[in-house]
C-alpha cells in the first residue's frame, strides 16, 4: 500500500525512488503498442520479443564498434527489426490464428538459439556489456515516445489503412471482396509492429548496462501478450494500461513476495473471466462488472424501458 500512498502524496519522490520501474513501464507500454497494431489487424503474432532482440543487439553493437551516435543506432536497430519483419512475414503471414502464433514463436526461438546464442559478436550466452548505458537519461526518450506513439497509432486506426485493418480483423474474405489487398495490409501491420518492438528493445538497452539474451525468449513474448489481453485490444489505450498495471503489479505485491506469481496468475484469470474485453473495453475505461450483475440490472431495468 505504501506504493500507492507515495504515488498519490509524493509523486516526485515516487518517481525518484522508482525510476527504473517507471522506465520499465514505459518500455512495456511501447511493446504493448507494438502488439496492439498486429492485434488490430486481426493477427495473433508472438514475434515481438524477437524483433525486440534485433533492435537491442543492433543498437548496442553499433554503439560499441562503429561508435555511431546513439539516436542513429536506435533508428537503425528499429529499421533492421522492421526489415526482419518483412523477411519473417513473407512466409508466416499466410497462416492464421494459433498457427501464426506458433510460427512466430518458432521465429523467436530460432533467433535466440540459432543466432544470438551462437554468434560470437553477440557475446553468445554471456550477453553483451553496454558501458554507454545511461539509466537516468534513458528515461527521457521513453517518456517522450509514449504519448507520440500513442497519438500516431490512434490516428492510424482512423486512416484508410486502419479501416482496412479493422475490416481484415472482422472478416478477411469480406475484406478482399471490398477490394482490400489483404496480404499487403497484414504485412504493413506486421512490419510496423516489428519496428515498434525493435524500438522498445533499442530504448531498453539505453537504461541497462547489460544486454541479457534470456530477456528475449518466449516468456517475454507471453508477457507482452498478457498486456494486450488484460488491457483490452479494442483501443490503443488498452494494451498500454495493461502494460503499466502488470509491470507495477510485482511492486505492489512485494509484501507477498513468495506468492507473487500465483497472485499474478489469479488476476489474469479473473480478468479473462469477468472482463474478457480487457480493462479498457470498447466504451473506454469502465468498471469491472461481472456478467451476472449486468444481466440482473437489465431485467430490473426492462419494465421502465417498456414504458
Amino acid at each position: 500500500m505504501d506504493f500507492f500512498i507515495q504515488l498519490l502524496t509524493d509523486p516526485i519522490g515516487f518517481y525518484n525512488s522508482h525510476e527504473l520501474l517507471v522506465a520499465q513501464m514505459g518500455i512495456n507500454a511501447i511493446l504493448a503498442i507494438s502488439i496492439f497494431v498486429t492485434f488490430y489487424s486481426g493477427q495473433l503474432t508472438l514475434a515481438n520479443a524477437g524483433f525486440m532482440a534485433i533492435g537491442a543487439y543492433t543498437t548496442v553493437l553499433l554503439s560499441l564498434y562503429p561508435q555511431w551516435p546513439l539516436p542513429l543506432d536506435m533508428l537503425l536497430g528499429s529499421l533492421l527489426a522492421g526489415a526482419a519483419g518483412v523477411l519473417v512475414g513473407l512466409p508466416v503471414l499466410r497462416l492464421r490464428g494459433v498457427f501464426l502464433a506458433i510460427a512466430t514463436i518458432g521465429f523467436v526461438e530460432a533467433l535466440l538459439l540459432g543466432v544470438i546464442l551462437n554468434v560470437p559478436i553477440t557475446g553468445e550466452g554471456q550477453g553483451l556489456k553496454n558501458p554507454t548505458a545511461d539509466p537516468l537519461g534513458g528515461i527521457v526518450p521513453i517518456l517522450v515516445s509514449i504519448p507520440v506513439l500513442t497519438y500516431l497509432v490512434w490516428r492510424l486506426t482512423r486512416t484508410r489503412l486502419g479501416q482496412a485493418w479493422a475490416a481484415i480483423r472482422e472478416d478477411e474474405l469480406a475484406a478482399s471482396s471490398n477490394g482490400i489487398n489483404v496480404p499487403l495490409y497484414k504485412m504493413i501491420a506486421f512490419v510496423i509492429g516489428a519496428i515498434l518492438a525493435g524500438y522498445a528493445g533499442a530504448l531498453e538497452t539505453h537504461i541497462n548496462f547489460f544486454v541479457d539474451p534470456t530477456e528475449y525468449g518466449i516468456s517475454r513474448t507471453i508477457q507482452i501478450l498478457t498486456f494486450a489481453v488484460v488491457g483490452g485490444t479494442s483501443n490503443v489505450l488498452g494494451p498500454i494500461v495493461g502494460a503499466v498495471f502488470l509491470t507495477a503489479l510485482p511492486e505492489i505485491l512485494r509484501f507477498v513476495r513468495d506468492y507473487r506469481d500465483v497472485i499474478n496468475g489469479v488476476i489474469l484469470i479473473l480478468v479473462i473471466i469477468f472482463r474478457p474485453q480487457g480493462i479498457v473495453g470498447r466504451g473506454g475505461l469502465a468498471l469491472i462488472r461481472p456478467r451476472w450483475l449486468h444481466r440482473r440490472g437489465r431485467v430490473r431495468g426492462s419494465p421502465a424501458s417498456a414504458l
Binding site: 500516431l152 490516428r155 492510424l156 482512423r158 486512416t159 484508410r160 489503412l161 479501416q163 482496412a164 479493422a166 475490416a167 475484406a175 471490398n178 477490394g179 482490400i180
Partner: peptide, 15 residues
C-alpha cells in the same frame, strides 16, 4: 469499408 478501392490514401493527412 466498401468504398476502400476509391478512397484516396490519407495516412499522412490523418496523422
Amino acid at each position: 469499408v466498401g468504398m476502400h478501392p476509391r478512397r484516396p490514401d490519407d495516412t499522412l493527412a490523418q496523422l
